[in-house]
């Protein structure tokens, strides 16, 4: 028997919700497990059957990681090298500076590409292709250069590296937002008496602001969580959060999952906070259609 139209619509929406719910579980489970584990005492980290929601919640993991209330304080352990606050500081400094530079230079470049075709289509594509090169193959040459320039294991070294490697994204993303601003709008401002700078400041910038904020967050996330290049180009002086995370494992005690989880929560929270602060811009920025014609 054939279904009626309303039945079909109902079935389809049930199907849609099932698929999306399934997807939500897949996406959200690791986050749930991370947060859950961070509150578990050590015997529950590996327990079988797994403990989904602990009944013995503890802040011990957080205290050990972030407040250095080490329960091993008397014994020999591997955690003496761990400096999470310093790593947080480094990560914050490096990501903010390199992301700001990338978005600043990227958007200026993108404006030139969008309005004055300073780069051809082919050049723009090549710029993006730079990102297709596996980072690992770049590390050796960069190491040599950095050694010569004395940039290894330094904050400026990582800032420069992240700035250069994220610049293509910044150009591409901000260009898509600048392209959205009709040229006629700029010309209208010009013929009404605005100078080029006034036009950019009064007309272009307000219209692409949301897009630039979205670009900023996107690149911030990339930089904030970058592991490979930081691992190979820094050693002991400059440690970022992803590197710090890898230190919470050792030959004697194995992986200390609870501590890692507590640190992971600390790594994730700042990004979520930034996201909440700028959410107004994100919705408009990521929808790519913020200019009403």
């Amino acid at each position: 028997m054939a279904m009626t139209k309303s039945q079909r619509q109902l079935n389809f929406s049930i199907f849609r919700y099932l698929v999306l719910t399934f997807w939500l579980f897949i996406v959200a489970f690791p986050i749930f497990w991370m947060v859950g584990t961070s509150f578990k005492p050590d015997i529950e980290w590996f327990a079988w059957p797994p403990v989904y929601i602990t009944e013995n919640g503890t802040l011990q993991n957080y205290l050990v990681v972030w407040a250095d209330a080490s329960e091993y304080s008397e014994s020999v352990h591997t955690q003496s090298l761990q400096r999470p606050w310093e790593a947080l500081g480094n990560s914050t400094l490096i990501s903010l500076i390199s992301t700001t530079l990338a978005v600043l230079f990227g958007s200026v470049l993108a404006y030139g590409v969008s309005r004055y075709q300073i780069l051809s289509e082919g050049r723009m594509f090549q710029l993006l292709m730079l990102r297709m090169v596996p980072p690992i193959v770049l590390i050796a040459p960069i190491s040599i250069w950095y050694r010569a320039l004395d940039l290894l294991d330094s904050v400026p070294g990582l800032v420069m590296l992240y700035f250069i490697t994220t610049l293509p994204y910044a150009v591409w993303m901000s260009k898509s937002f600048i392209d959205e601003v009709p040229r006629e709008m700029e010309q209208a401002a010009e013929i009404l008496g605005a100078s080029k700078w006034q036009t950019i400041w009064e007309v272009v910038l307000p219209l692409v602001r949301s897009g630039l904020v979205a670009t900023f967050l996107f690149i911030l996330i990339l930089t904030w969580s970058e592991y490979l290049m930081a691992l190979l180009l820094s050693k002991t002086n400059v440690v970022t959060l992803p590197i710090e995370l890898s230190k919470y494992q050792g030959s004697t005690e194995g992986r200390v999952y609870g501590r890692q989880a507590a640190l992971s929560v600390g790594i994730t929270l700042p990004l979520i906070l930034v996201g909440i602060i700028i959410r107004k811009h994100l919705v408009r920025g990521f929808s790519f259609g913020m200019v009403r014609r």
């Binding site: 009709p182 006629e184 709008m185 010309q187 209208a188 013929i191 009064e202 007309v203 219209l207 200019v291």
Partner: peptide, 13 residues
């Protein structure tokens, strides 16, 4: 000169 555009080109913000 003053110019009126096909798209009106009003500043939406």
């Amino acid at each position: 000169l003053g110019m009126v555009f096909q798209s009106h080109a009003l500043f939406p913000h």
